[in-house]
Design a protein around this nucleic acid. Structure first.
Length: 546
RNA sequence: GGCCCUGUCGUCUAGAGGCCUAGGACACGGCCCUUUCAAGGCCGCGACACGGGUUCGAAUCCCGUCAGGGUCACCA
C-alpha cells in the first residue's frame, strides 16, 4: 500500500492558463513534491475545434513561469493516442459494454426538450434501430457515436477533501458518449484510460468534476482499472458576482465601463466603434451579449476610448498576473491558500515551506471568493523583503511581457535605482508606470491639465512663481550627483522664502513628470540630472505661460 | 427544476465538545510619520446563517429551514 504518489495536471489547450487551472496544477504538484512522488502533465486536446499548437505553447509557458515543472520527459498528447482508445472501445463494443448510437444533435435536443416539458430529467436510454433505419442513417452520411452501456446500479466513491462518500442512485445513471462522431474519445474516456495507463494514483481536480467521477469509476470497472484516490477542490469565485471565476469577467468590466462612459458623455456605442475603429455591428452585439468576448486585439482599442488600462482589468489568466507585475512565488503562495490552509496563523510561505506543510486533510471544501487585495498585499510584502537581484530579475521578466514600456531600455543599475526609489510598491506595473517619465525624452512629457491647475495655477500662480525661483536656485547648484546636497540647497531656499517643502516639490514634480505623483522628488532629480531637469522646467514654464 | 456540494468578521481563514467574553491576515476607520502616491508604526470596528435537538457544557455532533455554489453536452 506504500506506493509512490503520482499526480497529474491535464488541461485542454485553449489559451493561456487560467488561475483556477493553475491552482489545480499547484495542488497536484504540491502533493507530489510533498510525498516525493511524481507530477505528470498531459494535454487533453480531443476537442479539435478549440485545441491549437499556439494554445499549448501558451499553456506551457505559464506553467514554466510558475515553476510547476512536470516529471514526464515526453509530453502526453491525447490526440496522439487514438489507437489506444479505439482498441479499448472496440473491445468494449465486442463485450457488449458499449454500443453505437445514431441520434443527431438535433434529435437529442428535442428529446431533452421533451423531457424538460414533462418536467422529468433527461436520461438517455439505449435505442434500438431497424435495419431500414440504419441504412437510412448511413445514407444520410451520419456517423455514430459510441456510448458506454453503464451498468444500472448505485455508485459510491470516497472523496478525500469532502471527507465522505459520494453516492449516486441507480436512477441517475446514463449511457454517456465515449467516442464522438469525429472519432475522438470524449473527456470521460480519455481521462480514465490515460490516468490508469500513466499510473496516476491521486486525482485532485475542480469540484465541477465531482459527479463526473461516477462515470469514471464505472468505466474503470469495465476496463479493469484500479480506482485512484479522488480529492475535489473548491471552486474559486468572482468576488463581484459570486459566480465561478471566468475569462468573461474581463469583458464584463470593460462592458460596464463602456456603459458608464456612454451614459456620462451622452455618446453611443456607434461612437465608441467609430473612435476605436471597430465595426459598429460587432461592438453593439458585444455590448448587449454578456457571454460574448472581444479578442485580444480588439480589447485595447475599446479600453483606450473609455479610458481603461490593463491594470484596471481583473486578472484571470496567469499571464495577466505576470503582465501586471506579480511574481510566481507570491501568486503560488496566494493560490495555495485558496482552498487549503496550513493551520494556525500561518499564511505567507516560501514554496519550500508549502511543499513541506501541504497535506490533503487540510484542503478546504467551501468555495473561496478570489480576493485580489490580499494577493496585492502579499506582493507588497514580498517586494519589500526581496534582495536586489530578485527585484531586478522580476523586473526584467515583467518588461519582457510588457515590451511597450520605455523601461525596457534601462540598464540593471538604472532598474535598481528605480526599484529602490519606489520602495513600498505593490506590483511591478506600478514601478513601471510611475517611473516611465524618467526614461522618456523631454518632449514626450505630457503635462496633465488638472495637475497644472492644482499645483501651478491655483492660489494666484504661487506654484508657478516657486517653480521659476527654484529653477534659478537649481541651475546654480554645484553638486547634482548627491541627493543630500541637492536636498540641502532646496531646503535652504524654502526656509529663506518660508515655504513648506511641498510648495516647491510639487511644482517641480509636475515640471519633470507632468503629473502630481512620482517617486521621491530628490531621487528623481538626481536620476534625471541637471540638464534634463532644467530643460523640463523650461518646457513646463513655456507650456503653462503660452 | 432534478441531483450534488458548502455555510465563522465585508473577504480569506484558525477552530476537530470545555483552552473561545472566538485568534490571525486583507480590507475599512482613526491617529502618527511625510515633498506627492505609497510604504511603515499604533489604536479601533467587525463573525459562529436561522430554528430545533443531543450534552453538565456546542462554532464544533444530529435534524430541519434558509442562503450560496456546482452540475445536468458528440466542452473539458
Amino acid at each position: 500500500m506504500n506506493q509512490t504518489v503520482v499526480t497529474r495536471f491535464a488541461p485542454s489547450p485553449t489559451g493561456y492558463l487560467h488561475v483556477g487551472g493553475a491552482r489545480t496544477a499547484l495542488f497536484n504538484w504540491l502533493l507530489a513534491k510533498h510525498t516525493g512522488g511524481k507530477f505528470l502533465l498531459r494535454i487533453e486536446d480531443t476537442d479539435l475545434a478549440r485545441s491549437t499548437d499556439e494554445a499549448t505553447r501558451q499553456l506551457l509557458e505559464d506553467l514554466k513561469w510558475l515553476g510547476l515543472n512536470w516529471d514526464n520527459a515526453e509530453l502526453v498528447f491525447q490526440s496522439k493516442r487514438l489507437d489506444l482508445y479505439n482498441n479499448l472501445i472496440d473491445g468494449l463494443i465486442a463485450d457488449g459494454k458499449a454500443y453505437e448510437a445514431w441520434e443527431s444533435t438535433a434529435e437529442l435536443d428535442s428529446m431533452r426538450q421533451q423531457a424538460a416539458r414533462a418536467k422529468r430529467p433527461f436520461i438517455y436510454k439505449r435505442q434500438t434501430y431497424t435495419t431500414d433505419q440504419l441504412a437510412k442513417f448511413k445514407d444520410e452520411g451520419r456517423t455514430p457515436v459510441v456510448r458506454f452501456a453503464m451498468p444500472v446500479k448505485e455508485y459510491r466513491f470516497h472523496d478525500i477533501t469532502l471527507g465522505k462518500d459520494i453516492v449516486q442512485s441507480q436512477y441517475e445513471v446514463q449511457d454517456f458518449v465515449i467516442r464522438k462522431g469525429d472519432g475522438m474519445p470524449t473527456y470521460h474516456f480519455g481521462v480514465v484510460v490515460d490516468d490508469a495507463e500513466m499510473g496516476v494514483t491521486h486525482i485532485l481536480r475542480g469540484l465541477e468534476h465531482l459527479l463526473n467521477t461516477v462515470n469514471h469509476i464505472a468505466l474503470q470497472e469495465a476496463l479493469g482499472y484500479e480506482r485512484p484516490t479522488y480529492a475535489h477542490l473548491s471552486v474559486m469565485l468572482n468576488p463581484e458576482n459570486g459566480e465561478k471565476l471566468s475569462k468573461r469577467d474581463r469583458d464584463r468590466r470593460i462592458r460596464k465601463r463602456v456603459a458608464d462612459w456612454t451614459r456620462s458623455t451622452k455618446k453611443t456605442i456607434d461612437d465608441v466603434a467609430a473612435v476605436s475603429g471597430l465595426p459598429a455591428v460587432r461592438l453593439n452585439e458585444w455590448f448587449t451579449t454578456d457571454t460574448m468576448q472581444l479578442d485580444l486585439s480588439e480589447q485595447p482599442k475599446v479600453m483606450k476610448v473609455v479610458g481603461l488600462t490593463e491594470g484596471d482589468l481583473p486578472e484571470i489568466m496567469i499571464h495577466d498576473f505576470r503582465r501586471n507585475g506579480y511574481v510566481p512565488e507570491v501568486l503560488l503562495n496566494f493560490l495555495a491558500l485558496q482552498g487549503w490552509s496550513p493551520g494556525g496563523d500561518r499564511e505567507q510561505m516560501t514554496i519550500a515551506e508549502m511543499v513541506e506543510l501541504f497535506s490533503l486533510d487540510r484542503i478546504i471544501s467551501s468555495n473561496p471568493k478570489f480576493n485580489r487585495e490580499k494577493l496585492k498585499s502579499f506582493s507588497t510584502d514580498f517586494f519589500a523583503k526581496a534582495p536586489k537581484e530578485r527585484l531586478i530579475s522580476a523586473m526584467r521578466d515583467y518588461l519582457k511581457v510588457n515590451p511597450e514600456s520605455p523601461l525596457n531600455g534601462a540598464t540593471d543599475e538604472q532598474l535598481d535605482k528605480v526599484l529602490t526609489m519606489n520602495v513600498g510598491f505593490h506590483i511591478l506595473r506600478e514601478v513601471d508606470e510611475k517611473s516611465r517619465f524618467l526614461f522618456q525624452p523631454d518632449d514626450a512629457i505630457a503635462f496633465a491639465p488638472d495637475a497644472i491647475e492644482k499645483v501651478l495655477l491655483k492660489n494666484d500662480r504661487q506654484g508657478l512663481t516657486a517653480l521659476r525661483d527654484i529653477r534659478t536656485v537649481l541651475s546654480d547648484a554645484p553638486n547634482w550627483s548627491a541627493h543630500d546636497a541637492l536636498e540641502a540647497v532646496v531646503k535652504t531656499f524654502c526656509e529663506s522664502k518660508s515655504l513648506g517643502l511641498g510648495k516647491v516639490a510639487q511644482p517641480l514634480r509636475v515640471a519633470i513628470s507632468g503629473t502630481a505623483v512620482s517617486p521621491p522628488i530628490f531621487d528623481c532629480l538626481v536620476f534625471l540630472g541637471n540638464e534634463k531637469t532644467l530643460a523640463r522646467i523650461d518646457r513646463c514654464l513655456a507650456t503653462v505661460t503660452s
